[in-house]
Simulated scan of single mutants.
Amino acid sequence: MSSPRVTRIVWPLFRIVIGLLFTCHGLSSLFGFFGGKGGTGESVPVGTWPGWYAALIQLVCGLLVLVGLFTRPAAILASGSMAYAYFVVHQPHGLMPIQNGGVTPALYSWTFLLIAVLGPGAWSLDELITTRRSSPPAVREPEHV
């Protein structure tokens, strides 16, 4: 049994951490940050399929999920890209993720699917935009001179 108050705090923190970690994968692959490709400090050559495009998706979708902007579409794209990575890159080397090195893409795929289904939660730009759109405009009193 979960408390709505705890969920309101933990869910956005979960989304933020997952977005940050995914962003770091993109930065690592695109720019060699954090050790780059395979810890060598190298980046993926621009335009190479599928690595460069996957890294771009990781960077952009990770940032969007991190700040909670267009969260659901970004999470769907991230989930799909990780499912592709699992089935195309990892599964040919073994059935189970623990055998084929695909634990990380499998976890990311399901995690982003969960974020897409449940939405961004509190502390997101999506929530801020929705709140501002749904609240009536403030009525300002005329200033007397």
Rank of each mutant, 00 (worst) to 15 (best):
M1K: 01
V6T: 13
R8N: 13
I9Y: 11
V10L: 15
V10P: 00
W11Y: 14
P12T: 09
P12H: 11
P12I: 08
P12S: 10
F14N: 01
F14E: 00
R15H: 11
I16K: 02
I16V: 14
I16F: 13
I16L: 13
I18N: 01
L20M: 13
L20H: 06
L21S: 07
L21G: 08
C24G: 02
C24I: 13
H25E: 12
H25W: 10
G26Q: 04
L27M: 15
L30H: 07
F31E: 00
G32Y: 10
G35E: 05
K37V: 15
K37Q: 14
G38C: 12
S43T: 04
V44F: 08
V44M: 10
V44C: 07
V44I: 15
P45D: 12
P45F: 09
V46H: 04
T48V: 14
T48I: 13
W49Q: 09
W49C: 00
P50Y: 09
P50Q: 10
Y53W: 15
A55P: 05
A55M: 02
A55W: 01
A55N: 03
A55L: 07
V60G: 00
C61V: 09
L63F: 12
L63G: 11
L63H: 02
L64G: 05
L66P: 02
V67Y: 10
G68E: 03
L69P: 02
T71P: 00
R72K: 09
A74C: 07
A74E: 05
A75H: 05
A78M: 08
S79T: 01
S79F: 04
S81K: 02
S81E: 08
S81T: 15
M82W: 03
A83D: 00
Y84H: 07
Y84D: 01
Y84L: 11
F87N: 04
F87R: 06
V88K: 11
H90A: 11
H90P: 02
Q91A: 15
H93E: 15
G94D: 12
L95A: 12
L95Y: 13
L95R: 12
M96E: 13
P97Y: 08
I98F: 08
Q99D: 15
N100Y: 06
N100R: 10
G102Y: 05
V103L: 10
V103Q: 08
T104V: 11
P105Q: 03
S109W: 03
W110L: 14
T111Q: 04
L113S: 09
I115S: 05
I115N: 02
I115K: 06
A116P: 01
V117H: 01
L118K: 06
L118V: 01
L118F: 14
G119S: 08
P120M: 06
P120S: 15
G121Q: 07
A122W: 01
S124Y: 07
S124C: 09
L125H: 06
L125T: 09
D126A: 04
D126C: 10
E127A: 15
L128Y: 08
L128C: 03
I129R: 12
I129D: 07
I129Y: 14
T131R: 13
R132M: 12
R133I: 11
A138M: 11
A138I: 14
A138Q: 09
A138V: 14
V139Q: 13
E141L: 14
E143C: 11
H144N: 06
